[in-house]
Simulated assay, not measured.
Amino acid sequence: MRAIRQLHTGDPFPPTSDALEYPNGLLAVGGDLTPARLLDAYCQGIFPWYEEPQPVLWWTPDPRSVLFPEKLHISRSLHKTLRRDRLQLAVDSRFEKVMRHCAQLRGDGLGTWIGDDMLAAYCDLHHIGHAHSVEVLDADGQLVGGLYGIAVGRAFFGESMFSEVQDASKVALVALQNILERGGFKLIDCQVESEHLNSLGAENISRLDFERMLAHTIDIDHDPGIWRLPATCGELL
């Protein structure tokens, strides 16, 4: 079995071709979660996923689940939810709260991969303009759904989403699509395939194809003014 590279401060990532087949995509262990390290990772299609207090695990799975913004599937029921126009929208106003909602314990009692170190690291990325959140609010202005992720160039790396009322996370995704299409983004990285993401239009591509797409998108700047939304979900239609 191939040995996993141990990372120390300043060490570069190994080639992504060194990633294990099982567990799929495990590339390296250790290192830190500084903004520079994280941005270097995302630019290469690598992301951290681990449970604290264990060392950081770095992944680059093959195949890769991606969603092209223009291919987002809006079901008939989701279209009805949008048309009812009962949910409010915001962007980048409650980033830490969105992360904390995503980090709540799973129902199986196994805990979460979004620990204190991850929370602090992504809040740092948010403060320098690379991490963004989309928030869905009820009529009273209470946070009931949302998502967050990383924007580099014209690629968006989705990290997690949550929903406390029906369709709230899907509404957040439609809102994200609205932003990304205005900004000329080429793809949303969904990391690993799931039935839920597939139902929304995600598809698998090879790691090599994913890396080739990144190479043509991460260096193309986008207008930071795109990170705004209409007041309510009905205006997305």
Rank of each mutant, 00 (worst) to 15 (best):
P55Q: 05
R84H: 13
A131W: 12
L27R: 03
H130T: 12
Y50W: 12
H127A: 15
H8G: 12
I46R: 03
D138C: 07
L137S: 11
S17G: 11
T16M: 00
R106V: 05
L67Y: 00
P15I: 02
Y42D: 02
L110E: 15
G31E: 02
S93L: 04
Y50P: 02
L125A: 10
W113H: 11
S77R: 08
G31M: 08
L7H: 08
L67R: 09
I4V: 15
L87K: 09
T34D: 07
H130A: 09
F68D: 13
T34W: 13
D40E: 13
G115Q: 11
D138M: 02
P12A: 11
G30D: 09
D108N: 13
E21C: 12
R2H: 15
L33V: 04
G146W: 14
D124L: 11
A3W: 02
A28P: 03
P53L: 04
P53T: 05
P14N: 03
L38R: 06
T16Y: 06
S65R: 06
Y50A: 04
P15A: 13
G25D: 10
A121W: 10
G115K: 11
A103D: 04
D116P: 14
G141S: 02
G109T: 10
R94L: 13
S75C: 04
N24F: 10
L26K: 02
W49G: 02
L67A: 05
R86Y: 11
H130S: 10
G10K: 06
H132P: 09
C102K: 08
Q44F: 01
F47W: 00
S75F: 12
T9S: 08
T60E: 00
I74E: 01
H126F: 14
E70W: 08
S93E: 12
P12L: 05
L27D: 06
G129R: 05
T81F: 01
D117P: 00
L125P: 14
Y42F: 11
V66Y: 00
W113N: 07
E52P: 01
G146P: 14
R76A: 10
D138R: 08
L110S: 15
W58G: 00
E21N: 14
G146M: 14
N24L: 06
R76W: 11
R5V: 15
E96H: 11
F47N: 03
V144Q: 13
R86Q: 14
R84I: 00
L26I: 09
A90M: 02
E21T: 15
Y22T: 14
E51T: 11
H79D: 03
Q88S: 11
P23Y: 10
D117I: 04
D85M: 01
R86G: 01
T60K: 00
W59M: 01
I46S: 03
R84G: 01
L57P: 03
H130V: 12
L33H: 04
L26S: 03
E135K: 06
W49Q: 01
T16A: 12
G109I: 09
D62Y: 06
R76E: 08
A103V: 04
I114V: 05
A139R: 12
N24C: 13
G107K: 13
V91D: 07
F95A: 12
G145S: 10
A131G: 14
